[in-house]
Design a protein around this nucleic acid. Structure first.
Lengths: 88, 88
DNA sequence: GATTATCGCTACATAAACTGTAGCATTAAT
DNA sequence: ATTAATGCTACAGTTTATGTAGCGATAATC
């Protein structure tokens, strides 16, 4: 499945996660992703833009409507992970 | 976050996806994952077992209770992806 | 009770993906 | 005009994944 192929690549989910907070410039996004290498960041952005999940305007990169929805899915995952992380 | 680190590795989500259907032997699991290399499959299994998401018994590998829950999260993602894939 | 099959898994050479740093071209502020 | 910040590319070095061969162990078959 195309979505899983992309999400399963290193940094993809992290990039989406960081973009939930609002638009970010390329350099800001890099810093928030532990200074991911610009090469890979650019590859991820490219994929996500082709998938209508991320877009770009003069104020930086951000989530499209689809991206916001996907972000909500990640939040659901995060809530589950919170419970899971407290397992005994 | 630990969960995203693991899920974001190649093949991890696919392995979980395939295990939703029931227990599978190492070799069966390999085949269903497009003949992923055994080296990597074993690494993923190891991580997922340490996280109490996958377990092993004489009938093969399968999901723990936590794994089933996580699988449900993936199904939610899949349902969303289905809608998304029909975008215009 | 040897033999054949299947199993989980490791070894290892090759290939692909990621990293880290430097820096170019462009635009925005001073 | 100069300085500063931006998005992004280049590239060498490292890490990760692939593909194939095969070992040791257990299970069925003759």
């Amino acid at each position: 499945m195309q979505l899983f192929d992309v999400l399963g690549k290193r940094w993809t989910m992290r990039v989406l996660w960081e973009l939930r907070g609002g638009r970010l410039s390329f350099r800001e996004l890099r810093m928030r992703c532990e200074n991911i290498s610009p090469t890979v960041l650019n590859q991820r952005i490219k994929s996500l833009r082709e998938m209508d999940i991320v877009d770009q305007c003069k104020t930086g990169y951000g989530l499209t409507n689809w991206g916001v929805e996907l972000g909500e899915q990640l939040i659901a995952l995060d809530i589950w992970a919170e419970r899971w992380s407290h397992r005994k």
